[in-house]
C-alpha cells in the first residue's frame, strides 16, 4: 500500500484497543484505528460526544490505550486547546514527556454543527493539534438524524423521505473548505477507500506543527442502510464517483490525492445505499434528484479542481 509499510505496523499496539462497543462494521473505529497507525509519538486523545466516544468508554472500561478525555458534545476543539496548553506550560517546568501529540475527534454532529465554533476558535488560535472528523453524514448516536453534513435527498429520521418531501432538501456544507479558510497549515479529506491515503494524511497532519484538520467519510451501516461488510466498497464508490473528493490543502495549496480514471456515476453510490432507496422506487422515479446529485458532485469537483493542482 503506497508509501506505508503495513507489515511493520502490525507489530504496534493501536491507541484504540479491542473491546469497544461500536456496531459491527462501523466505519468510525476503522478510520480512527487507521489514523493512529501512522503516529509514532505518544498521543493524547480528546473526543467529542458521539458514538465513538460513548462506545469506547463504557464504564468501568476504556478502549483507549492512551490518555483520553471527553468533556461534552460541542467543545472538543476547546478541550484539546486546554490540554495542549497545559502540556506547553508544564513542559517548561520539566513535567511530563516531550513530543506528545494531541488528537481530537468528533463525528459530523460534533464537528460540522454543534462543535463548529469551538473548532474554529481552536484552529484560529493555532494550537498544535490534529482534529479528525469521522463523518457519517448524520447524528448516529441519537438515531440517524440529519446534520449539516447530510447530503441532499438522503432520508434521515429528521429528514425522512415522505409523500411530500423526498428526504433532505439542502446540500451538505463543505466543512473541509471551511477549515481550509482558516489558513491553517494542513487540511485533508479522505475516506476508507485506501488505508495508505488515510494513514499518510493523518501522519502528515500530526507531524505538521500547528492545527490540522482531517475529514474522513465513514459509512454508518444503520443510517446508510448497507451491509456492514460492504464498508470498503461503498467508500470506493464515494471516491470513484467524486461524491467525496480525496484531496489535501497543505500550506494553502490544494492537491487532489486521487483522481478516478473513469469516474463512476454518483447514481451507483446512491443506489448502493438504503437511505436513497426512495429515489429508485418505480412509483417515485426521482430521476430529477439523481441528476441533481450528479450536478452537485460535478459542480463541487469543478470548483475544487479549479483551485487544485492535479495529482503529480
Amino acid at each position: 500500500m503506497g508509501g506505508v509499510n503495513v507489515r511493520e505496523l502490525t507489530g504496534r499496539n493501536n491507541p484504540l484497543a479491542e473491546g469497544h462497543r461500536m456496531c459491527p462494521g462501523c466505519g468510525a473505529p476503522t478510520a480512527l484505528r487507521q489514523a493512529f497507525m501512522g503516529i509514532d509519538d505518544p498521543v493524547v486523545v480528546v473526543g467529542a460526544t458521539g458514538c465513538l466516544e460513548v462506545s469506547t468508554t463504557v464504564y468501568p472500561y476504556s478502549s483507549w490505550r492512551v490518555p483520553f478525555m471527553h468533556v461534552a458534545f460541542e467543545n472538543a476543539g476547546a478541550a484539546v486547546s486546554g490540554v495542549a496548553a497545559a502540556h506547553k506550560a508544564m513542559g517548561r517546568r520539566g513535567l511530563f514527556r516531550d513530543g506528545i501529540k494531541f488528537v481530537a475527534f468528533g463525528g459530523d454532529g460534533g464537528t460540522y454543527d454543534i462543535g463548529l465554533q469551538s473548532l474554529s476558535g481552536a484552529l484560529e488560535r493555532g494550537h498544535d493539534f490534529t482534529y479528525i472528523c469521522y463523518n457519517n453524514q448524520g447524528y448516529m448516536n441519537t438515531g440517524a438524524q440529519r446534520s449539516g453534513a447530510t447530503p441532499r435527498s438522503a432520508s434521515s429520521t429528521t429528514s425522512p423521505a415522505g409523500r411530500l418531501i423526498p428526504g433532505k432538501l439542502q446540500r451538505a456544507k463543505n466543512l473541509t473548505e471551511i477549515a481550509a479558510a482558516h489558513d491553517i497549515p494542513y487540511v485533508a479529506q479522505t475516506t476508507l477507500h485506501d488505508p495508505s491515503d488515510l494513514i499518510k494524511k493523518v501522519r502528515r497532519a500530526v507531524e505538521t506543527p500547528g492545527p490540522a484538520f482531517v475529514n474522513i467519510l465513514v459509512p454508518c451501516a444503520l443510517f446508510w442502510k448497507i451491509d456492514p461488510a460492504d464498508q470498503v466498497k461503498i467508500c470506493r464508490l464515494a471516491a470513484d464517483s467524486r461524491f467525496w473528493p480525496i484531496y489535501e490543502v497543505a500550506n494553502g495549496e490544494r492537491r487532489i490525492s486521487y483522481t478516478p480514471k473513469k469516474p463512476v456515476p454518483v447514481e451507483d453510490f446512491l443506489r448502493a445505499q438504503g437511505r436513497y432507496s426512495h429515489l429508485f422506487t418505480d412509483e417515485a422515479n426521482r430521476r430529477d434528484l439523481i441528476d441533481q446529485a450528479q450536478a452537485d458532485v460535478d459542480a463541487e469537483w469543478e470548483k475544487l479542481t479549479g483551485n487544485a493542482k492535479p495529482q503529480s
Binding site: A17, E18, G19, H20, R21, P24, T56, T57, V58, Y59, P60, Y61, S62, S63, W64, R65, V66, P67, F68
Partner: peptide
C-alpha cells in the same frame, strides 16, 4: 474524576455479539 484505566475494555468480550 470519573476515570477508567487505559485499555481496560480488552476484557470485554464483544465476540458475544456475533
Amino acid at each position: 474524576g470519573t476515570i477508567t484505566l487505559g485499555a481496560s475494555s480488552r476484557s470485554v468480550e464483544t465476540g458475544l455479539w456475533r
